[in-house]
């Protein structure tokens, strides 16, 4: 098992963000983490990446508690720009190469070339969308075991979305899994193997996409609209 959460909970003051979640994820899958705003998607991803401490419960990635060993095998893309703006693209490549043993400079350079991004360019001079593309390239150029992508296509144009989704599919190995949190369900639906629906910090559905289509006769997008109808 790649990921195991037992009775995982997170509270912000008196507000419950995650409510005793039990979750097991296997390797070799692309999993959509879906839910409305405030459902706990980002909180779960932040706990898995190690930047948020759970209020209770247990989390293991590859049988390891969250810490320095899991950070070696988890590749995390947050929903915000986390690269220092004084850096050039080349310096971000050097940075990732310096700290992550599984980072492939060749893969990153290849993707940058395809998106026509110059390595000499400074992040400060780039548009928000281009910076997000650079971040995604860096994250997907790691040979990680678990990729955590928080809203990876939220800030980019529809043309770039296709390229990003192709990048995600083609850059993870069968030993790894990808968790994608997004609101743009119709855009990602075709690449997902499994989906998890989160509602007010509870998992209300964890199923294979094919099962949803067979059992409900609906797309994931249509089921999502039904489950989370206001």
């Amino acid at each position: 098992m790649l990921l195991e959460c037992n009775k995982l909970c997170k509270y912000y003051g008196d507000k419950t963000a995650l409510n005793n979640i039990d979750l097991q994820l296997e390797r070799g899958k692309i999993i959509g983490l879906l839910g409305p705003n405030g459902s706990g998607k980002t909180t779960l991803i932040k706990i898995l990446s190690g930047i948020l401490t759970p209020s209770g419960g247990e989390v293991k990635i590859s049988d390891k508690n969250i810490g320095i060993e899991t950070k070696k095998i988890v590749s995390y893309l947050p929903e915000r720009t986390y690269l220092s703006d004084w850096m050039t693209v080349q310096q971000t490549l050097n940075f990732f190469k310096d700290f992550y043993e599984d980072f492939s400079v060749e893969t990153a350079l290849d993707m940058l070339q395809k998106l026509d991004i110059q390595t000499s360019e400074k992040l400060r001079t780039m548009s928000k969308g281009t910076r997000e593309k650079v971040q995604l390239i860096l994250v997907m150029s790691r040979n990680a075991e678990l990729y955590l992508l928080d809203e990876p296509i939220g800030g980019v144009d529809p043309a770039a979305r296709d390229y990003i989704l192709k990048t995600i599919i083609s850059n993870f190995n069968e030993n790894a899994s990808v968790i994608i949190s997004t609101h743009l369900i119709s855009d990602v639906e075709n690449i997902l193997d499994d989906v998890i629906f989160l509602k007010y910090g509870d998992i209300v559905l964890h199923s294979a996409v094919d099962e949803i289509r067979e059992q409900h006769g609906k797309s994931v997008d249509a089921l999502f609209r039904e489950v989370f109808a206001c």
Binding site: G50, I51, E69, V74, Y76, L83
Partner: peptide, 15 residues
């Protein structure tokens, strides 16, 4: 670099 956006990178480094 510790508590704002860059912290998302620094705290996910394997250090």
């Amino acid at each position: 670099s510790f508590l704002k956006d860059e912290g998302y990178l620094m705290h996910t480094l394997p250090v």
